[in-house]
Write a protein that binds this DNA or RNA. Sequence first.
DNA 1: GAAAATTCTGGCACTCGGTCTCGTTTGGTG
DNA 2: CACCAAACGAGACCGAGTGCCAGAATTTTC
Lengths: 209, 209
Amino acid sequence: MLDERSLPLRERKRLRTRRTLAETALRLFTDHGFEATTLERLVEEAEVSKSTFFRAFPAKEAVAVEAETEVWTAYTAALDRGRPEGVVLDVLRDALTEVAVALDPDWDRRYVATRRLILTAPALLAYVDHYRTGVERQVVACLAGKLGLDDGDLRLQVLAELTTTAWSVAARDWVRNEADGGRERLVRRLRDAFRAVPASLDLRAPGTG
Amino acid sequence: MLDERSLPLRERKRLRTRRTLAETALRLFTDHGFEATTLERLVEEAEVSKSTFFRAFPAKEAVAVEAETEVWTAYTAALDRGRPEGVVLDVLRDALTEVAVALDPDWDRRYVATRRLILTAPALLAYVDHYRTGVERQVVACLAGKLGLDDGDLRLQVLAELTTTAWSVAARDWVRNEADGGRERLVRRLRDAFRAVPASLDLRAPGTG
DNA sequence: GAAAATTCTGGCACTCGGTCTCGTTTGGTG
DNA sequence: CACCAAACGAGACCGAGTGCCAGAATTTTC
């Protein structure tokens, strides 16, 4: 994803401490719990100061969900680059799918660990909920710009949400099965989820007498 | 909404401090900003202890968005009570609409103040984002039970989100116009929003020559 | 390649939200 | 009136997050 060797020394170091922190955090949080692990303990283990931590991450929660943010960072970046054509929902689906297949090979392991962690810590759940909404806002703004629509257009908001929801459902299933079948399985699940969306509108309560 | 006089004295007192806190909070936060107002200052002004505050509200953010939570508490309660029939999206729309018209007359003022406040405080935005997601989860669980569907059914999640989104768009517009036209205007906006939902799926990028 | 200018880091004090404990008060009950 | 349960106030305590500054490391300049 990121070419390590071509960067200036300072940037390389920044990236290294970032990774060390994320790696250490995932281990500590998994072993002893998110809340039970203090920041002090984490930065001590990673051999950096608290100041450095907050220069790399905006909050304790953020370092725990790196794998999640990687997905959405790539996703919004792809949308920013691309020029939407045809059915917008398809554009979003394709962008997200391409991101999924292009992720770092090590991402699978980290993502699974992250999702499991989230299930155990309410603060993390709150963080990702809000993060996800932020992504949707970003997508809406991006599309509104490119399509010449209003920022408050309900259709854009709906489409942005459908996409994150499809991911969320697909990923939940994928993680539950220990990410068996690898990235291909995730992509298949994602496709299925998008396919199932239109049926939602027509869902009816089964005939009540 | 709540019959004050029929409650035991202790409950009445609890409710009174709750209201005092919410009222005081809305005033202080509006006048001096959410972050700039410390909890200490708030409880001092409301003449209760910090302990009492946290017995009434789970967090500083919660007291600022009372008006928002009232809506969704009533909404989920209505769904829990009712028995869904016909098109599920219509069921949700009707439930939410009925809640909107039934809210306390004083609610309008508080809601407008709350929404304005949220625009100024990132922490509040995060809080309501997460809160909203929680409501959706609750709705999904409720419907899954009543309809005999799986908790992870994508369709339910989509429907739950469409509903909160419709509200969110309608309310945004309503608040922007100072809640002019009163509750009827909000209800109209809500109806329009729900009507616009299906068109989302077919949204296309304008033909690129 | 040394010196100057920038940028990053560590350490520390500080604020503030939130939890916990415990002794006291207050409303419900027979 | 007496008893019990529940709510309250006070204060100690924890830990996340911020601001400040002196010093180290990196980059740039000559």
